[in-house]
């Protein structure tokens, strides 16, 4: 009897909830203000750690290279050949849109002039990926006539995996071999 009455009273009385609601509201405000909502990537990649300071330009097309060298353009998996053709198409569209403003059709057609910017590409490659995979994508992106390419990185300090395999390697120091040859290319 005694139990039942207290339980009913507690259930009908919401006063005990108010501190809970306060905290939940605070959490809500924190996540709304501090977090940024963005579309998630097709695959999770752990980009290379870098000291690079330039913030991400969100207006770029994103090319993701996953662990198995699978390539995603705008979160859709495509092949390397499709990447070139799709990017060429986008680049041409962009240049055509720019043409009336710049009124330099001969330069715009080349796609190489200083004024023609075209689209810019952000490559999100996994840090553990081989350079071969990155170089392949770079070559295909550039064959589409795109000049502005960037590689996504994470800042070094905030990462829990700040030590790269390079920095921790216990190999003998100091220059060993000799011979300075100024290489021309």
């Amino acid at each position: 009897m005694n139990f039942a009455s207290t339980r009913i009273r507690a259930a009908s009385n919401d006063d005990g909830m108010i501190p809970l609601i306060n905290i939940v509201f605070l959490l809500l405000i924190f996540f709304m203000v501090a977090g940024t909502i963005s579309a998630s990537d097709a695959v999770m990649v752990t980009p290379p750690m870098s000291k690079a300071e330039s913030p991400l330009n969100i207006e770029q097309m994103t090319v993701i290279i996953g662990h198995d060298n699978d390539i995603y353009l705008a979160n859709e998996q495509i092949t390397l050949e499709q990447l070139t053709s799709d990017l060429t198409q986008m680049q041409n569209q962009m240049l055509q849109n720019q043409m009336p403003q710049n009124q330099m059709p001969q330069n715009q057609m080349m796609g190489q002039s200083e004024d023609s910017q075209g689209i810019s590409i952000l490559i999100k490659a996994d840090g553990q990926l081989s350079m071969h995979a990155l170089q392949e994508v770079l070559a295909h992106v550039k064959s589409a006539g795109i000049a502005r390419i960037s590689l996504a990185t994470f800042p070094v300090a905030t990462s829990p995996v700040a030590t790269s395999p390079v920095a921790t390697s216990p190999v003998a120091t100091s220059p060993v071999a000799s011979g300075h040859a100024d290489g021309g290319i």
Partner: peptide, 28 residues
Amino acid sequence: VVFILLLFFMLSSSFQKWRQVNISAPTN
């Protein structure tokens, strides 16, 4: 409702600070 909003913001917001390294073509 507040809990649902909280869940939404917790799951959809990201705190990763992306940076970028620019790789420009030779012409630029």
